[in-house]
Simulated scan of single mutants.
Amino acid sequence: MKIKVPTLEEFLSHDGLHYKNLWREVGDSWICPSCKRSKYEVMRWAKRFPNSSNAFWGWVAPLHRHHDHSAPYMSNQGRFPMTAICDQCNSSDGAAKRKLRLPKDFSFSPQEIGCFVNATPHGKHEIDYEMAKAIYDSLHI
């Protein structure tokens, strides 16, 4: 499947949708600290509201404030500070935890996520579950 690439005009006119505050906050030169994609490369063509009768195709580029879910148990900060990462990296953290049956209160750091995802500009990530498991096992948690 050919990946659709946004024009510069489409990128510059993207308002951030439901994540507009974080979209503006990170600035146009932001790069995901996990997958190293630029803010422009994070944008992908996707079906919006896919389970709705009002579904339509459009540009999305969700960003998330990724945090250590164990922070309440470890300290206020946890293993790493809250960090803005792209939706694909944030989703990869959850997918790896579910597939590997890791504790729900565990979170991979942004740098650890970057070690087990294979990112494609304007596309979805591929996850190396063996690498994610090796990273988890190396933490001695």
Rank of each mutant, 00 (worst) to 15 (best):
R101Q: 15
M82G: 02
F49T: 10
R48M: 10
W30L: 06
M131A: 14
N21I: 03
H64N: 13
C86I: 12
S53T: 05
L22W: 05
R98W: 08
D15S: 14
W30A: 08
S13W: 10
P50D: 04
G94D: 06
H69A: 00
H122F: 15
Y40P: 02
I113N: 12
A134C: 04
Y19W: 11
F108L: 01
C86F: 13
G58D: 09
V42K: 09
P33R: 13
S34N: 11
K97L: 08
S107K: 02
S107W: 04
Y40M: 09
E10F: 12
L139E: 04
K97H: 03
P81T: 02
P62M: 08
K99P: 01
E130N: 13
Y136S: 04
N51I: 04
P50W: 07
P50M: 06
H64D: 08
K47T: 15
W23F: 11
F49R: 15
S109W: 11
F56A: 01
L100T: 07
V117H: 13
H14S: 04
K4T: 12
S109L: 07
H64T: 07
I31W: 02
W45F: 14
A95W: 02
A71E: 00
I113T: 12
Y129T: 02
E9R: 14
L12S: 12
S92F: 03
E112A: 09
K39W: 06
S38W: 10
L63P: 13
A84Q: 03
K2M: 07
S53L: 06
E10P: 09
F116D: 03
M131E: 15
A96S: 15
A95Y: 07
G123H: 10
R24E: 14
K133D: 11
A119N: 11
S70I: 00
P50F: 11
P81H: 01
W23L: 08
H67P: 00
S138D: 06
N118V: 11
